[in-house]
Amino acid sequence: MNPKELIARRIGQEFKDGDIVNLGFGIPNASANYIPEGVNVILQAENGALRFGATPTKDTLTPDYGNSGGAPITLLPGAATFDLQTSFAIIRGGHVDKTVLGALEVDQAGNIANWMVPGVMAPGMGGAMDLLVGAKKVIASIQHTDKKGNSKLLAKCTLPLSAANAVDMVITELAVFEIKDGKFFLTEHAPGVTVEEILAKTEGEVVVSENIKEFFS
Rank of each mutant, 00 (worst) to 15 (best):
L159K: 08
L154M: 15
P56W: 00
G48C: 12
D64K: 11
Y65R: 04
K183F: 07
L154A: 02
V21Q: 03
G66Y: 05
N165T: 12
H95Y: 10
Y65E: 09
N40V: 13
L174I: 06
K4W: 01
V106L: 06
A166F: 02
F15K: 00
D97W: 01
Q13E: 11
Q108P: 14
I90H: 09
G70A: 15
L199V: 11
K156F: 07
L50Y: 04
V207C: 07
A140T: 01
M169L: 11
E173T: 11
L159I: 14
A79D: 09
A113T: 09
T55P: 10
F184L: 08
L153S: 02
K137Q: 14
Q85E: 04
D64F: 13
N67W: 00
E188Q: 15
T145H: 09
D17V: 03
Y34T: 05
L104Y: 13
F216R: 05
I73E: 02
G204Q: 03
R51C: 03
V193Y: 08
I198Q: 03
V206T: 15
D181F: 10
Q85H: 08
E210T: 09
N165Q: 15
T158R: 14
G119Q: 12
L75N: 12
L23R: 01
N114T: 07
T57K: 15
D19P: 08
T187Q: 09
C157G: 12
A135M: 05
P56Y: 04
S141Y: 04
I198D: 00
L104M: 11
A190W: 00
D146I: 11
N111A: 07
D168N: 13
R9W: 04
P28I: 08
K180Y: 09
V193D: 07
V206Q: 07
L75C: 15
E188Y: 12
A122P: 04
K147E: 15
K16G: 05
A175R: 14
E196D: 15
L101G: 00
I35V: 14
I112D: 02
V176H: 03
V170R: 00
V21S: 05
